[in-house]
């Protein structure tokens, strides 16, 4: 048993080393409390809904979210808009469909099964409209950046005047959390930019947090069920391990060996 604990702690040690080597690359990001972290972490519904508002009113003019569908907005574990609300949101978009019987493409109001409408038809159009820089698709953006939510949250608030000696080209901005500090997206958020219907004050910090929460959900839409299932699974495994341990003791008591 002693031997076993040694192995077990070795595995834990290994895991923590692997975690810390990743941490070693991290910059000091701005900190905030994320409701979805931890063993029982869940999304803050109101924050998700506000985050969706920030996305549609601010980000969506350049950034696509091609893996999300309008139906996702009403799904469990997400912003949980009511089905009627999600339908109304979908219907407020013009979706290209077709070809119809005459062989022509046409537009119609969006349905729940439609994917989020993209701001540009393709990558080239997006680049042409943004001075050569492609505004990345945001569906899995949180998972595609080393610092995850903390990075996005900090980046949105990280705009500063460039320090002396740094010169910026036209259309390039200084951001202290950006890799290389130069970013082609201008500062988008300012206090009171959106008007939250639930009365929350739309500070830059609040909007950053809300939209980042929304992006976390879009990257991990099953996070809540993952946490719930994980807790049950690990609890179950512990119970079974204890049972097996005592069964093992019983069985091995027939031979005189320490186990």
């Amino acid at each position: 048993m002693k031997n076993f604990l040694k192995i077990f702690s070795l595995i834990i040690l290994f895991s923590s080393i692997s975690l810390s080597t990743q941490a070693a690359e991290k910059v000091e990001y701005l900190k905030t409390d994320w409701s979805f972290k931890g063993l029982f972490g869940k999304f803050d519904r109101a924050s998700l809904q506000r985050g969706y508002q920030v996305y549609t009113e601010v980000c969506s003019s350049c950034h696509s979210m091609k893996y999300l569908s309008y139906r996702n907005l009403a799904e469990k574990g997400g912003p949980e808009f009511s089905e009627a609300e999600a339908k109304a949101i979908a219907a407020s978009y013009e979706v290209k469909d077709g070809p119809n019987a005459d062989g022509e493409m046409f537009t119609r109001p969006g349905k729940l099964s439609d994917k989020f409408v993209m701001p540009y038809d393709n990558v080239q159009a997006a680049q042409a409209a943004n001075g050569g820089a492609y505004p990345p698709d945001m569906s899995v953006l949180v998972k595609a950046r080393g610092g995850g939510v903390d990075y996005i949250y900090s980046l949105l608030q990280g705009y500063e005047d460039p320090p002396a000696g740094v010169t910026l080209d036209d259309g390039v901005y200084y951001n202290k959390y950006m890799y290389g500090n130069k970013i082609k997206m201008a500062n988008q958020l300012s206090d009171g930019l959106v008007e939250y219907s639930d009365g929350t004050r739309a500070t830059v910090e609040q909007m950053s947090k809300d939209v980042t929460t929304f992006l976390m959900w879009s990257a991990e839409p099953h996070l809540e069920s993952r946490h719930q299932m994980g807790f049950k699974a690990i609890l179950y495994l512990i119970i079974l391990t204890i049972l097996v341990y005592f069964s093992m003791k019983k069985i091995w008591s027939r031979v005189e060996t320490e186990i």
């Binding site: 076993f4 834990i12 975690l19 690990i234 495994l237």
Partner: peptide
């Protein structure tokens, strides 16, 4: 089973 506990932790939490 002990191994699976570690495994499950990775799968469900990180």
């Amino acid at each position: 089973l002990m191994f699976m506990i570690v495994f499950a932790f990775f799968v469900f939490y990180t």
